[in-house]
């Protein structure tokens, strides 16, 4: 696969990371989390499907990964991405299966924390996010585009069906989706940039690190 655009030149290659971890380099373990943390968090949030997930699961993925790398179980270091994704999926499936078996999920092998509900920062982020959505929607040319977003994102209807009902081509559908997502992202990033460094760090940690939808 061709190198990903936007990737830093200085980022370590997967095989290099594996070799450094095998050699006992602790900074390589940090680099592993830094390089793959965002992606693994997305996989876990998706697997959680709205359920509260604790940071423990995220940490467990990387702890197990490092253990397996150290034990020489990663036989194809250049395919480290696939290995980590598979590990995250399996641990998430296993976690939620165990949680389902224990009923309410109050206690299992890992420690379940009760969800205290959205904190003050969560509430600010939620309100801010909704404002950005309103702005994004207001910039769309018509009600049809808003219907498209509602049906696709919230009602989770099939693209072909939406296109047929709203008399849209696949290309028009993609344009609306692309425009909405990009505009929203632009507003979000602009707001993050204008925060103080402390606020930005706190928000970034909340958004990227917590596992509540």
């Amino acid at each position: 696969m061709a190198p990903h655009p936007g990737r830093s030149e200085q980022e370590p290659l997967p095989a290099e990371l594996v070799a450094r971890i095998l050699a006992g380099d602790r900074t390589a373990e940090e680099a592993l989390v830094s390089k793959y943390g965002r992606g693994i968090a997305i996989i876990l949030r998706r697997a959680a499907n709205g359920r509260a997930v604790m940071d423990d699961l995220f940490q467990e993925v990387f702890l197990r990964a490092v253990e397996k790398i150290r034990a020489g179980e990663v036989r194809e270091p250049e395919r480290l991405s696939g290995f980590l994704c598979g590990l995250a999926r399996n641990l998430a499936i296993d976690h939620f299966r165990r949680e389902a078996l224990t009923g309410s999920g109050t206690e299992s092998v890992t420690h379940q924390q009760s969800d205290p509900g959205p904190g003050p920062l969560d509430q600010v982020l939620q309100a801010e996010g909704q404002e950005f959505v309103r702005q994004t929607l207001a910039e769309l040319p018509g009600a049809r585009d808003r219907q498209l977003l509602l049906r696709f994102y919230i009602r989770e209807e099939d693209k072909d069906r939406i296109c047929a009902d709203l008399k849209l081509s696949s290309l028009q559908f993609n344009r609306v989706l692309h425009r909405a997502r990009e505009r929203f992202g632009e507003l979000y990033r602009k707001a993050v940039r204008h925060r103080s460094p402390e606020q930005a760090k706190s928000v970034k940690n909340q958004v990227a690190g917590n596992f509540k939808e």
Partner: peptide, 19 residues
């Protein structure tokens, strides 16, 4: 998992849907 462009897109889409 290793593509900053797709990670941005995914996070934008996640936040957008959530909001």
């Amino acid at each position: 998992v290793d593509c900053p462009v797709c990670l941005d897109r995914l996070e934008d889409a996640e936040r957008f849907r959530s909001a």
